[in-house]
């Protein structure tokens, strides 16, 4: 589902964000990406939805070589990928419902279908009762759950998360990871970048460990 072949990303200042990175995450797997700050986790995640492109090497997502796609295919690809970032990019002046509905409105779905899907996604993250609240009125943990609902409302095939629990206390962090595990259980391919080793070790999930832009090791689940 996600395949990196000798991928390097060199920035304009000459610094390598990633250097000769190769790995393969088959469909339906859940994998953690870990490493210190600056090890290349975010750089790697940005390559998967083609927000950035490698300087050399090949990134394949769902069988597509991201370099060889046509322009109109990129938005379609991104709709198949749910992304959860630490800074949630919610539209704070909009209601919870509108925030979660946004990815579906982009694709022009029927309003009744949008309502059903949004309510189901909010129910899944335990926020159905807050759908009319403005996002700014929510706590950090609730905002992150809205972000997760928004990432999943399009029923993506892949879920990417970049430090999704950075602002949350340990209990909420665990809850968020449990939700990711639930989505993995229904067949979504999940890749989560986090440096919270304590939390990661409580899940039997393989880990790709990055160090200074290179893969230091790949640890199998135990």
């Amino acid at each position: 589902m996600i395949k990196f072949e000798g991928v390097s990303r060199r920035f304009t200042n000459g610094h390598f964000g990633l250097q000769n990175v190769s790995f393969h995450i088959p469909e339906g797997r859940m994998v953690f990406l870990t490493g210190h700050s600056g090890s290349g986790k975010s750089t790697l995640l940005r390559l998967i939805p083609a927000l950035d492109q490698p300087t050399s090497g090949t990134v394949r997502v769902g069988g597509h070589d991201l370099k060889r796609m046509r322009p109109h295919q990129y938005p379609k690809l991104r709709r198949q990928i749910g992304v959860v970032f630490q800074d949630h990019h919610l539209l704070l002046d909009q209601t919870v419902f509108n925030n979660v509905a946004l990815p579906l409105q982009v694709t022009g779905y029927d309003p009744a279908l949008i309502r059903r899907r949004v309510e189901a996604a909010l129910d899944k993250v335990g926020l159905l009762h807050r759908q009319r609240a403005r996002s700014i009125e929510l706590s950090g943990g609730e905002q992150q759950r809205v972000n997760i609902a928004r990432a999943l409302v399009n029923r993506p095939k892949i879920l990417l998360a970049d430090e999704p629990t950075g602002n949350l206390d340990p209990e909420l962090s665990r809850e968020v990871f449990n939700q990711f595990a639930d989505f993995h259980a229904i067949g979504v391919t999940v890749l989560i970048a986090s440096h919270d080793l304590h939390l990661l070790k409580t899940f039997a999930v393989p880990r790709i460990v990055l160090h200074e832009g290179q893969i230091a090791r790949i640890e199998e689940a135990y």
Binding site: P49, L51, P75, K76, R78, R79, I81, V83, F85, D87, H89, L102, P103, V106, T107, R150, N154
Partner: peptide, 16 residues
């Protein structure tokens, strides 16, 4: 930048 890329990630085109 983050807000624009956030919208791209939701599947919007550059114009949107």
């Amino acid at each position: 930048r983050t807000a624009i890329e956030g919208r791209l990630l939701l599947g919007q085109t550059a114009d949107q």
